[in-house]
Amino acid sequence: MSRSLYYADAIREALRQCMQEDGDVYIFGEDVALYGGVFGVTKDLFHEFGPKRVRNTPLSEGAILGEAIGAAVYGLRPVPEIQFSDFLTTAMSPLVDIMATYHYRVGTKLPITIRAPSGGALRIGHFHSKCLEAWFVHTPGLKVVVPSTAYDAKGLLVSSIRDNNPVLFLEQKKLYREIKDEVPEEIYDIPLGQAIIRTEGSHITLVTYGSPTYLALKAAALLQKEGIELEVIDLRTIYPFDKETLKKSFSKTNRVIILHEAVKIAGFGAELAAFFAEECFEYMAAPIMRLGALHTPIPTNPVLEDHYLPSLQDILDAARGLMKY
Protein backbone atom coordinates (compact mmCIF):
# COMPACT_ATOMS: atom_id res chain seq x y z
CA MET A 1 0.00 0.00 0.00
CA SER A 2 1.24 3.44 -0.77
CA ARG A 3 -0.12 6.92 -0.14
CA SER A 4 0.92 10.44 -0.75
CA LEU A 5 3.41 11.76 1.81
CA TYR A 6 5.32 14.98 2.22
CA TYR A 7 9.10 14.76 1.82
CA ALA A 8 9.58 15.49 5.55
CA ASP A 9 7.07 12.83 6.59
CA ALA A 10 8.71 10.24 4.35
CA ILE A 11 12.01 10.90 6.12
CA ARG A 12 10.34 10.50 9.50
CA GLU A 13 8.83 7.21 8.36
CA ALA A 14 12.24 5.94 7.29
CA LEU A 15 13.67 6.89 10.68
CA ARG A 16 10.81 5.23 12.53
CA GLN A 17 11.02 2.00 10.53
CA CYS A 18 14.81 1.80 10.81
CA MET A 19 14.53 2.30 14.56
CA GLN A 20 11.90 -0.43 14.75
CA GLU A 21 14.08 -2.72 12.67
CA ASP A 22 17.32 -2.19 14.59
CA GLY A 23 17.63 -1.32 18.26
CA ASP A 24 21.09 0.12 17.68
CA VAL A 25 19.72 2.96 15.54
CA TYR A 26 19.23 6.16 17.51
CA ILE A 27 18.68 9.86 16.84
CA PHE A 28 20.30 12.84 18.50
CA GLY A 29 20.92 16.48 17.75
CA GLU A 30 19.80 19.97 18.56
CA ASP A 31 16.06 20.19 19.36
CA VAL A 32 15.26 16.80 17.83
CA ALA A 33 13.44 15.35 20.84
CA LEU A 34 10.14 16.77 22.13
CA TYR A 35 10.25 19.70 19.73
CA GLY A 36 10.79 17.36 16.77
CA GLY A 37 13.59 19.34 15.14
CA VAL A 38 13.36 22.87 13.76
CA PHE A 39 11.69 21.50 10.63
CA GLY A 40 9.53 18.98 12.51
CA VAL A 41 11.16 16.01 10.79
CA THR A 42 11.64 13.98 13.98
CA LYS A 43 8.29 15.01 15.47
CA ASP A 44 6.60 12.34 17.61
CA LEU A 45 9.58 9.99 17.51
CA PHE A 46 10.47 11.07 21.04
CA HIS A 47 7.08 9.86 22.27
CA GLU A 48 7.44 6.62 20.38
CA PHE A 49 11.03 5.70 21.24
CA GLY A 50 11.77 7.67 24.39
CA PRO A 51 14.65 9.83 25.56
CA LYS A 52 17.31 7.16 25.13
CA ARG A 53 16.87 6.88 21.39
CA VAL A 54 15.70 10.39 20.55
CA ARG A 55 17.85 12.85 22.42
CA ASN A 56 18.48 16.58 22.48
CA THR A 57 22.09 17.68 22.69
CA PRO A 58 23.88 20.88 23.61
CA LEU A 59 24.70 23.21 20.71
CA SER A 60 27.95 21.46 19.92
CA GLU A 61 28.08 20.08 16.41
CA GLY A 62 31.66 18.89 16.94
CA ALA A 63 30.63 16.98 20.04
CA ILE A 64 27.59 15.57 18.22
CA LEU A 65 29.67 14.11 15.39
CA GLY A 66 32.34 13.07 17.89
CA GLU A 67 29.69 11.08 19.74
CA ALA A 68 28.55 9.51 16.48
CA ILE A 69 32.06 8.24 15.76
CA GLY A 70 32.63 6.77 19.22
CA ALA A 71 29.17 5.21 19.37
CA ALA A 72 29.67 3.65 15.93
CA VAL A 73 33.06 2.24 16.94
CA TYR A 74 31.30 0.65 19.91
CA GLY A 75 28.69 -0.92 17.61
CA LEU A 76 25.74 1.48 17.51
CA ARG A 77 24.22 2.94 14.35
CA PRO A 78 23.94 6.64 15.12
CA VAL A 79 21.78 9.01 13.09
CA PRO A 80 22.77 12.51 14.22
CA GLU A 81 20.96 15.56 12.91
CA ILE A 82 22.92 18.70 12.13
CA GLN A 83 20.26 21.38 12.32
CA PHE A 84 21.45 23.13 9.13
CA SER A 85 24.13 21.68 6.88
CA ASP A 86 25.76 25.12 7.13
CA PHE A 87 26.66 24.28 10.74
CA LEU A 88 28.84 21.40 9.59
CA THR A 89 31.60 23.97 9.39
CA THR A 90 31.86 23.84 13.18
CA ALA A 91 32.25 20.06 13.04
CA MET A 92 34.62 19.71 10.13
CA SER A 93 37.42 18.02 12.01
CA PRO A 94 35.37 15.16 13.48
CA LEU A 95 33.71 14.68 10.09
CA VAL A 96 36.62 15.04 7.71
CA ASP A 97 39.63 14.08 9.82
CA ILE A 98 38.23 11.31 11.98
CA MET A 99 35.01 9.91 10.55
CA ALA A 100 36.02 9.88 6.89
CA THR A 101 39.43 8.31 7.54
CA TYR A 102 38.59 5.85 10.29
CA HIS A 103 37.94 2.74 8.28
CA TYR A 104 40.97 3.30 6.10
CA ARG A 105 43.31 3.88 9.03
CA VAL A 106 41.92 1.76 11.84
CA GLY A 107 39.86 -0.78 9.90
CA THR A 108 36.70 -0.33 11.91
CA LYS A 109 33.51 0.49 10.04
CA LEU A 110 31.44 3.50 11.02
CA PRO A 111 27.75 3.10 10.15
CA ILE A 112 26.74 6.73 10.67
CA THR A 113 24.10 8.69 8.79
CA ILE A 114 24.30 12.43 9.26
CA ARG A 115 21.04 14.12 8.35
CA ALA A 116 21.53 17.75 7.44
CA PRO A 117 19.04 20.09 5.76
CA SER A 118 20.64 21.83 2.82
CA GLY A 119 19.83 24.39 0.17
CA GLY A 120 18.29 27.80 -0.28
CA ALA A 121 15.37 29.74 -1.77
CA LEU A 122 13.77 30.11 1.67
CA ARG A 123 15.07 33.65 2.22
CA ILE A 124 17.01 32.64 5.31
CA GLY A 125 20.37 33.89 4.22
CA HIS A 126 23.92 32.76 3.91
CA PHE A 127 24.15 30.78 7.14
CA HIS A 128 21.07 28.65 6.56
CA SER A 129 21.02 28.10 2.81
CA LYS A 130 24.33 26.81 1.57
CA CYS A 131 24.96 23.77 -0.60
CA LEU A 132 28.29 22.41 0.60
CA GLU A 133 28.15 18.95 -0.96
CA ALA A 134 31.26 19.39 -3.13
CA TRP A 135 33.47 19.65 -0.03
CA PHE A 136 32.34 16.24 1.12
CA VAL A 137 32.51 14.52 -2.24
CA HIS A 138 36.08 15.80 -2.24
CA THR A 139 36.68 14.01 1.08
CA PRO A 140 37.52 10.31 0.59
CA GLY A 141 35.50 8.11 2.93
CA LEU A 142 32.11 9.83 2.86
CA LYS A 143 29.04 8.95 0.82
CA VAL A 144 26.81 11.86 -0.11
CA VAL A 145 23.07 11.52 -0.79
CA VAL A 146 20.74 14.28 -2.00
CA PRO A 147 17.14 13.06 -2.45
CA SER A 148 14.57 15.03 -4.44
CA THR A 149 11.30 13.14 -3.87
CA ALA A 150 9.50 11.77 -0.84
CA TYR A 151 9.78 8.26 -2.28
CA ASP A 152 13.53 8.62 -2.74
CA ALA A 153 14.02 10.33 0.60
CA LYS A 154 12.56 7.34 2.41
CA GLY A 155 14.26 4.63 0.37
CA LEU A 156 17.63 6.35 0.30
CA LEU A 157 17.55 7.10 4.03
CA VAL A 158 16.85 3.43 4.75
CA SER A 159 19.84 2.48 2.57
CA SER A 160 22.01 5.11 4.22
CA ILE A 161 21.19 3.93 7.73
CA ARG A 162 21.78 0.29 6.75
CA ASP A 163 25.07 1.19 5.05
CA ASN A 164 28.20 0.49 7.09
CA ASN A 165 29.89 3.73 6.07
CA PRO A 166 29.46 7.37 7.00
CA VAL A 167 26.75 8.89 4.84
CA LEU A 168 25.97 12.56 4.60
CA PHE A 169 22.25 12.74 3.89
CA LEU A 170 21.53 16.23 2.60
CA GLU A 171 17.82 16.82 2.94
CA GLN A 172 16.41 19.53 0.74
CA LYS A 173 14.78 21.79 3.29
CA LYS A 174 12.84 23.65 0.60
CA LEU A 175 11.10 20.38 -0.30
CA TYR A 176 10.09 19.32 3.23
CA ARG A 177 6.51 20.54 2.89
CA GLU A 178 6.48 21.49 -0.77
CA ILE A 179 6.78 18.04 -2.29
CA LYS A 180 4.34 15.21 -1.83
CA ASP A 181 4.44 11.92 -3.71
CA GLU A 182 3.52 8.28 -3.45
CA VAL A 183 5.40 6.43 -0.74
CA PRO A 184 4.87 2.76 0.14
CA GLU A 185 3.91 2.13 3.77
CA GLU A 186 6.38 -0.71 4.19
CA ILE A 187 10.12 -0.27 4.58
CA TYR A 188 12.12 -0.39 1.32
CA ASP A 189 15.52 0.73 0.17
CA ILE A 190 16.93 2.42 -2.90
CA PRO A 191 20.56 1.45 -3.56
CA LEU A 192 23.06 4.27 -3.14
CA GLY A 193 24.79 5.30 -6.34
CA GLN A 194 21.87 4.82 -8.72
CA ALA A 195 20.59 7.76 -10.70
CA ILE A 196 17.05 7.94 -12.06
CA ILE A 197 15.84 9.33 -15.36
CA ARG A 198 13.00 11.71 -14.48
CA THR A 199 11.98 12.36 -18.06
CA GLU A 200 13.33 10.90 -21.26
CA GLY A 201 14.49 12.95 -24.19
CA SER A 202 16.84 12.68 -27.11
CA HIS A 203 18.47 16.09 -27.50
CA ILE A 204 20.09 17.19 -24.28
CA THR A 205 21.03 15.36 -21.09
CA LEU A 206 20.33 17.52 -18.06
CA VAL A 207 22.09 16.21 -14.96
CA THR A 208 20.97 17.48 -11.59
CA TYR A 209 20.16 16.41 -8.03
CA GLY A 210 18.02 17.64 -5.18
CA SER A 211 15.51 20.44 -5.48
CA PRO A 212 16.67 21.85 -8.87
CA THR A 213 15.24 18.63 -10.34
CA TYR A 214 11.84 20.36 -10.36
CA LEU A 215 13.22 23.36 -12.18
CA ALA A 216 14.72 21.02 -14.75
CA LEU A 217 11.39 19.26 -15.26
CA LYS A 218 9.65 22.59 -15.75
CA ALA A 219 12.23 23.53 -18.35
CA ALA A 220 11.83 20.16 -20.05
CA ALA A 221 8.05 20.70 -20.37
CA LEU A 222 8.52 24.18 -21.84
CA LEU A 223 11.26 23.16 -24.23
CA GLN A 224 9.28 20.24 -25.50
CA LYS A 225 6.86 22.72 -27.03
CA GLU A 226 9.79 24.07 -29.04
CA GLY A 227 10.78 20.61 -30.12
CA ILE A 228 13.78 20.38 -27.75
CA GLU A 229 13.82 17.21 -25.69
CA LEU A 230 15.62 17.20 -22.36
CA GLU A 231 16.52 13.96 -20.67
CA VAL A 232 16.49 14.90 -16.99
CA ILE A 233 18.68 12.70 -14.82
CA ASP A 234 18.43 13.02 -11.05
CA LEU A 235 21.63 11.60 -9.56
CA ARG A 236 20.12 11.04 -6.07
CA THR A 237 23.55 10.00 -4.75
CA ILE A 238 26.50 12.20 -5.70
CA TYR A 239 29.15 10.01 -4.12
CA PRO A 240 29.30 7.44 -5.47
CA PHE A 241 27.61 8.71 -8.62
CA ASP A 242 26.08 6.72 -11.43
CA LYS A 243 28.49 7.08 -14.33
CA GLU A 244 26.80 4.42 -16.42
CA THR A 245 23.43 6.14 -16.58
CA LEU A 246 25.15 9.42 -17.48
CA LYS A 247 27.27 7.86 -20.17
CA LYS A 248 24.34 6.02 -21.70
CA SER A 249 22.23 9.16 -21.88
CA PHE A 250 25.08 11.31 -23.21
CA SER A 251 25.91 8.77 -25.90
CA LYS A 252 22.36 9.38 -27.18
CA THR A 253 22.04 13.15 -26.73
CA ASN A 254 25.67 14.27 -27.24
CA ARG A 255 24.83 17.44 -25.29
CA VAL A 256 24.76 18.05 -21.58
CA ILE A 257 23.66 20.69 -19.09
CA ILE A 258 24.77 20.25 -15.51
CA LEU A 259 22.55 22.01 -13.01
CA HIS A 260 22.96 22.48 -9.27
CA GLU A 261 22.03 24.98 -6.64
CA ALA A 262 25.55 25.15 -5.25
CA VAL A 263 27.99 27.83 -6.34
CA LYS A 264 29.02 27.01 -9.90
CA ILE A 265 32.77 27.53 -9.49
CA ALA A 266 34.37 24.31 -8.22
CA GLY A 267 30.92 22.93 -7.46
CA PHE A 268 30.12 19.23 -7.92
CA GLY A 269 29.18 20.11 -11.50
CA ALA A 270 32.85 20.68 -12.23
CA GLU A 271 33.50 17.04 -11.41
CA LEU A 272 30.62 15.97 -13.64
CA ALA A 273 31.92 18.15 -16.47
CA ALA A 274 35.33 16.58 -16.09
CA PHE A 275 33.73 13.14 -16.20
CA PHE A 276 32.01 13.91 -19.50
CA ALA A 277 35.20 15.40 -20.92
CA GLU A 278 37.46 12.58 -19.81
CA GLU A 279 35.27 9.54 -20.23
CA CYS A 280 32.66 10.49 -22.84
CA PHE A 281 34.62 12.67 -25.23
CA GLU A 282 33.72 10.63 -28.28
CA TYR A 283 30.02 11.48 -27.83
CA MET A 284 30.50 15.21 -27.38
CA ALA A 285 28.87 17.47 -29.95
CA ALA A 286 28.73 20.71 -28.00
CA PRO A 287 30.32 22.47 -25.02
CA ILE A 288 29.50 21.12 -21.60
CA MET A 289 27.21 23.65 -19.92
CA ARG A 290 27.16 24.22 -16.18
CA LEU A 291 24.48 26.11 -14.28
CA GLY A 292 24.97 26.96 -10.64
CA ALA A 293 24.79 29.80 -8.19
CA LEU A 294 26.76 33.02 -8.34
CA HIS A 295 30.15 33.23 -6.68
CA THR A 296 28.90 35.34 -3.77
CA PRO A 297 27.72 34.71 -0.24
CA ILE A 298 24.00 33.97 -0.28
CA PRO A 299 21.84 37.09 -0.05
CA THR A 300 18.64 37.05 1.99
CA ASN A 301 16.62 39.54 -0.06
CA PRO A 302 14.34 37.64 -2.50
CA VAL A 303 15.34 39.75 -5.49
CA LEU A 304 18.99 39.06 -4.84
CA GLU A 305 18.58 35.41 -3.87
CA ASP A 306 16.55 34.65 -6.98
CA HIS A 307 19.27 36.21 -9.06
CA TYR A 308 21.90 34.30 -7.11
CA LEU A 309 20.29 30.90 -7.84
CA PRO A 310 20.19 29.27 -11.27
CA SER A 311 16.82 30.04 -12.89
CA LEU A 312 14.40 28.49 -15.31
CA GLN A 313 15.47 31.07 -17.88
CA ASP A 314 19.10 30.00 -17.45
CA ILE A 315 18.15 26.44 -18.39
CA LEU A 316 16.07 27.56 -21.38
CA ASP A 317 18.91 29.74 -22.64
CA ALA A 318 21.49 27.03 -22.17
CA ALA A 319 19.33 24.45 -23.96
CA ARG A 320 18.57 26.73 -26.89
CA GLY A 321 22.25 27.58 -27.16
CA LEU A 322 23.28 23.94 -27.18
CA MET A 323 20.86 23.14 -29.98
CA LYS A 324 22.85 25.42 -32.29
CA TYR A 325 25.64 22.83 -32.35
Binding site: G66, E67, I69, G70, A71, V73, P78, P94
Partner: peptide, 12 residues
Protein backbone atom coordinates in the same frame (compact mmCIF):
# COMPACT_ATOMS: atom_id res chain seq x y z
CA UNK B 1 39.81 15.89 18.58
CA UNK B 2 39.39 12.47 20.17
CA UNK B 3 37.82 13.79 23.36
CA UNK B 4 34.27 14.02 21.93
CA UNK B 5 34.78 10.62 20.30
CA UNK B 6 35.46 9.18 23.75
CA UNK B 7 32.04 10.56 24.71
CA UNK B 8 30.50 8.48 21.95
CA UNK B 9 32.04 5.29 23.31
CA UNK B 10 30.86 6.27 26.78
CA UNK B 11 27.36 6.97 25.50
CA UNK B 12 27.25 3.60 23.75
Amino acid sequence: AMVPVANGVAFA
